[in-house]
Amino acid sequence: MENIKNFKARLVIQDFKQKSGIDYFDTYAPVACISTIRLFIATALIHNLIIHQMDVKTSFLNGELDEEVYMNQPQGFIMPINENKVCKLIKPLYGLKQALKKWHQKFDEVFLTHGYLLNQADKCVYSKFDEIVLYEGHGEADLILVSTSMDTSEKLMPNNGHVVSQLEYYMVIGCLMYVMTCTRPDIAFAVEGYTDASWNSNIEDNSSTSGWVFLLGGGVISWASKKQTCITSSTIESEFVI
């Protein structure tokens, strides 16, 4: 049996006494999507990156409480001569219904004021980049958009008439895919996504089934299969329904 090095105690409030609309209002807070976590792990493997993980101790105590909330003095810490007084909370305590939301608001505020950008596809993802290099050469952005030919021996011709070699083209496409997977995970799904749908596969209500899968680095990061909510009259229509 391991020796106990220290003892810790946590003050938890009795949230079952809170009244909605008086002691608290909104209690929701976003949670990172599991597909986003898979995406970052796959990206780290592709680019041989190191993932760091950290934990904020007593994180809920860092939030700012807007509501006026009172609690009884905790047992063992009652002030002499002031036994009948209560405590007015300035910071959220563990157990408070709005504690998680207040912590997220504080976290969001600090990260945004330090130059981080909030991902619009997943509200739990923040990114910050000092410099993004898309192309090592010089010129305007139209060098990235070139006329693609099926013939690999043929030179590629962008809008400005500059001849681009196949190697330069591959470098540009590689940079574009890097931006999608590393700096813009919300559009990375457009790189390796597959979807299909059956037609009238359910014999009971003639409904169809949609299915999709998204891959990154050869691994699946998101997938789903579900029955469609409307009836389609052709295979083409069923493929348009998500």
Rank of each mutant, 00 (worst) to 15 (best):
Y194E: 12
R38C: 07
N159P: 12
I34D: 09
V31M: 09
N159T: 06
C124S: 11
T36V: 03
L96I: 00
L143S: 03
K91C: 09
K226V: 05
I221S: 00
L45I: 14
D55K: 05
Y28F: 13
Q166A: 02
K155G: 08
C33G: 02
P158A: 10
Y116S: 07
G76T: 05
L65Y: 02
M177A: 09
T183K: 05
V191I: 13
W199L: 11
L118F: 03
L45C: 15
D15M: 10
K8D: 06
L143I: 14
K227A: 00
Y194I: 01
D142E: 15
E204W: 08
C87A: 04
L89S: 07
E64I: 09
S238G: 02
C87P: 05
V191Q: 10
M54N: 08
H138D: 13
T113S: 15
K128T: 02
Q98D: 09
L134H: 02
N159A: 15
R184P: 02
D26R: 11
I50W: 00
I50C: 11
I41K: 01
A121C: 07
L118Y: 01
W199F: 13
S225C: 10
I132Y: 15
K227M: 11
K97T: 02
S208I: 03
H47D: 11
C230S: 14
N82W: 10
F129C: 13
I34T: 13
E136D: 13
N62D: 10
A44C: 12
K88I: 00
V179N: 04
L156I: 08
H138K: 12
Q120A: 07
F60T: 00
M1R: 07
I41Y: 04
F60S: 02
Y169D: 06
H47F: 13
Q98C: 08
E83I: 09
F40C: 00
Y169V: 11
S201F: 08
L65I: 01
N82T: 04
N202R: 14
L39M: 04
C124Q: 02
F40N: 01
L143D: 12
S225Q: 04
V163W: 01
E154A: 15
T181C: 10
S222V: 14
V164P: 04
N84Q: 14
G137N: 11
F40S: 02
C230L: 11
A42E: 00
L112Q: 05
E2H: 08
T235L: 05
I4E: 03
P92H: 03
V191D: 09
E68D: 15
F40Q: 06
E204L: 10
P92D: 00
P80S: 13
F111E: 02
F214P: 01
K88N: 07
E154R: 12
A188I: 01
